[in-house]
């Protein structure tokens, strides 16, 4: 079975409690766009954590970029994480760093030289409308501005997968529209995008997006389309990118 991400019978349990995710199986096509929806507490954030390797599952198999990441040695995790962009629900900006330095962080972690940072970071700042806030620290930014910095940080490394947890929760409708244009542009360049949201208005913004619905830790997939996605269901770029 192809796909950039594969989950097979994945279960996640925190401590000794009940399973947060149960028997989750799906396959994400490379270059496709997915919305992950479901009520609060359904397990969306937990599923995203598994996707961006912040957590290992309690059971089941997860394959990322064709490799089993459940048994992946810790030393190889950074290499996989650099291929995934994440927009956290709570932004997780580094409080001591300016907007510029926060956005530059993934590039610096990846070892990009300082002289090669300035242009892409400034372009990204301009794109999210924060050129005049480059030196501002997160504490002095509004919630919306922080979110835009978090999104810029997630996409600056041109990740192969972009995972966003409620990315438009703190931005106005106009900015939300621009952000989705950015996601769409990235998607057209081949990035697989997974956006967790319970904002139903967003779902109509990307016409070719696939919907994943979680409820009480289980993925609703009555037709099996998420588990075995036909090539036609991925986004425009994804169709070309799939094996």
């Amino acid at each position: 079975m192809g796909g950039i991400v594969q989950f097979e019978n994945v279960g996640l349990r925190y401590g000794t409690g009940a399973e947060t995710l149960s028997d989750v199986s799906f396959s994400l096509a490379q270059g496709a766009f997915y919305f992950l929806t479901g009520p609060s507490g359904a397990g969306k954030t937990s599923l995203l954590k598994l996707l961006y390797l912040a957590q290992r599952p309690s059971r089941g198999l997860i394959r990322l970029f064709g490799e089993d990441v459940v048994t992946l040695p810790r030393a190889r995790m950074p290499g996989f994480r650099r291929r995934i962009g994440v927009v956290f629900q709570d932004f997780r900006l580094v409080p001591y760093l300016s907007a510029f330095d926060n956005i530059a962080l993934p590039l610096r972690v990846a070892g990009v030289e300082e002289r090669d940072l300035e242009t892409p970071v400034n372009e990204m700042l301009a794109w999210v409308g924060l050129s005049n806030r480059a030196t501002a620290r997160p504490a002095t930014l509004s919630g919306g501005e922080q979110q835009r910095v978090a999104i810029a940080r997630a996409v600056i490394g041109r990740p192969e997968i972009l995972v966003a947890d409620e990315p438009t929760g703190n931005v106005d409708p106009e900015m939300a529209k621009r952000l989705f244009h950015l996601f769409d542009a990235l998607n057209r360049l081949g990035t697989t995008i997974v956006v967790a949201t319970h904002d139903v208005h967003l779902l109509s913004r990307v016409s070719h997006a696939e919907m994943m619905r979680l409820d009480q830790g289980r993925l609703a997939d009555p037709t099996g389309v998420l588990r075995y996605p036909p090539p036609a269901q991925a986004g425009p770029a994804g169709q070309a990118g799939r094996a």
Partner: peptide, 16 residues
Amino acid sequence: RATIDVMHLLGATDLQ
């Protein structure tokens, strides 16, 4: 801790 978690998730190695 929060900064370290973020760096980890961005792909920073333990040595970094």
